[in-house]
């Protein structure tokens, strides 16, 4: 295996770290010095070599540890993975999409051999080898969506299309930005987005839904979203808010650079063939302010974005209480120089 996987934790002692390679390929989400909601959609995959946009499902140095963290979360709370009965077929579609893509994109890590519906899957990083029958649920230890998403970084929502809307009828959600799958499963697009401030008034959701409904088989798309998290914690769920909430108040001017993380979601959209459902993977990338500031453009820009952001959004994204400390810390990296367009650092 060519890729090195970090031995690290996303809770407790928080030993998570980004190598220089990971810093260089971080999907910094701001393409300008200000931020407001937008649909900001691009075709996927596709992007400079080495970036997380290059492959269908990005695998990076955090893979093995993220999967261990998911296992811990699921053991404590199995309701983080849910699939309403009619979504099993979409689960198989997702399993196929991921296995086929990973085996093609990372041949030294994953291998898939198919003879009709007799499949043989090898996942070297996680030490898994499994022969099973495609579309036959009893041949896997759990449902197909759960099986494959225990082996794939990021959260997953599977959306059922009906009545001109999308319904979140299945998902695997263990690294979410403070929303509950167990509570939201079965909701339509407008219902599960209901708590998001301002966006409805701006018509963002109408446009986004219209776009999503028009995603066809064979066309895939992506967008970036972001929030702020104290400590490199994947499980910032409402379920455990009483456990991670207090950590939000441990930020000081001395530790903000290390403890305050920018949390980026690489969201992708795929139309699944047999179920006609939409797969909505939400991949989370974490990087602390200190590491972000190693790229002068990112340091300048993040300072400006967080300083000038709409107060409602600072509140919704959960960093209003620490905003002043964050902005003060970042100001040392902002000399007022102009920044270049686009998200990539100036190399």
């Amino acid at each position: 295996m060519t890729m090195q996987f970090n031995d690290e934790t996303f809770r407790g002692d928080y030993t998570y770290f980004n190598s220089e390679t990971a810093i260089n390929r971080f999907p910094f989400p701001f393409d300008q010095d200000t931020y407001m909601y937008s649909v900001n959609i691009e075709q996927h995959p596709g992007g400079p070599k080495g970036t997380p946009f290059e492959k269908m499902f990005d695998v990076d140095e955090h893979y093995v540890s993220e999967m261990k963290d998911r296992e811990i979360t699921l053991a404590e709370d199995p309701l983080r993975c849910q699939s309403l009965p009619h979504m099993e077929l979409a689960g198989w579609d997702l399993l196929e999409l991921i296995m086929v893509s990973k085996a093609k994109d990372y041949p030294d890590l994953f291998k898939l051999t198919r003879d009709g519906n007799d499949w043989h899957w090898v996942n070297k990083p996680l030490g898994i080898e499994k022969k099973f029958t495609f579309l036959a649920p009893t041949t896997l230890p759990c449902g197909p969506m759960e099986y494959i998403t225990r082996q794939t970084q990021g959260d997953f929502a599977l959306l059922h299309e009906r009545d001109g809307n999308l319904w979140m009828d299945a998902g695997m959600v263990t690294s979410q930005a403070d929303w509950s799958l167990d509570f939201d499963v079965g909701m339509n697009f407008f219902e599960w987005h209901a708590p998001v401030p301002k966006a409805k008034k701006m018509g963002v959701f109408d446009k986004a839904l219209k776009f999503l409904l028009s995603v066809n088989q064979g066309q895939h798309y992506r967008r970036l979203n972001w929030t702020m998290t104290v400590n490199p914690r994947l499980d910032t769920s409402p379920e455990n808010y009483h456990k991670w909430g207090p950590e939000k108040r441990t930020i000081t001017p001395e530790n903000v650079g290390q403890k305050q993380f920018l949390r980026v979601e690489l969201q992708t959209f795929f139309r699944l063939p047999r179920s006609n459902a939409l797969a909505f993977p939400i991949r989370c990338y974490l990087m602390n302010l200190e590491d972000i500031a190693t790229k002068p453009k990112w340091g300048r820009r993040l300072h400006r974005v967080l300083r000038d952001i709409d107060p409602d959004l600072a509140d919704y994204k959960g960093f209003a209480v620490n905003q002043e400390m964050i902005v003060n810390y970042l100001s040392q990296f902002d000399d007022g120089a102009p920044t270049s367009p686009g998200i990539f650092p100036e190399s």
């Binding site: 009965p85 009619h86 077929l89 059922h160 299309e161 009906r162 066809n216 088989q217 064979g218 063939p273």
Partner: peptide, 12 residues
């Protein structure tokens, strides 16, 4: 073209 579906079954 690739297949597209405007008349899918409601599997519920």
């Amino acid at each position: 073209s690739a297949p597209s579906n405007l008349f899918q079954l409601d599997l519920r």
